[in-house]
Amino acid sequence: MKTPNRTDAFRFTLGSLAHLLAFSLMLFTWSAEATAPRIAAKMLGEERHVDVVGYYSSSQNTPAAEIEGKLTADLLSAAFQAGGMQPEIDVLPSKQLAKYEFVVNQVPVLICAEGDLTAKEMKRYRLVTYFLSDVANGNNPISLAFDLKNPRGDKLYKAFDKGLQKIISNGKYRELMQKHLGKDAVSANYFSRLQRQNPR
């Protein structure tokens, strides 16, 4: 059996110190990791990035308005998708807030009605009325306002315009109208009017 000499004892002490230091460091590190996230102020989840903002109001809180809202959302998604884009669409419970997001927070597209923008604002944005809903039944047409000075707004405008023509031609538009409104609810001349209002 080897008798420990002074050098061995020194090595042993150094080794123990190193272990102690490593253990202490580990403890401190673990402690920091365990407590820091609870101390740091942070928000739950990632903030949503929105491309298109719309609104509904409490006065529209009827079954018919709900169907129209779903139809509009489906038509918009289908048109953008056919144009090669999948924008994030958000619908707020207030027109004032939706407009704020468009005008102040630079969300590039606003789903709105004619008259929602002032004459001054109309000059700044490209307002396109697409008559997404069945105008023959007397419903208000739905417009999209695009901020064409915003590169993303310009891209979305081009994609939507192209995609809308596509879904009118390939029957997807008709299919969605009939899915939400029923076959008989869509007026006979609606699709020819739609073609006229949105010419190639």
Binding site: S57, S58, P93, S94, K95, Q96, L97
Partner: peptide, 8 residues
């Protein structure tokens, strides 16, 4: 109040 009214 205006926002609440809009949002029902």
């Amino acid at each position: 109040n205006i926002l609440y009214e809009e949002a029902g």
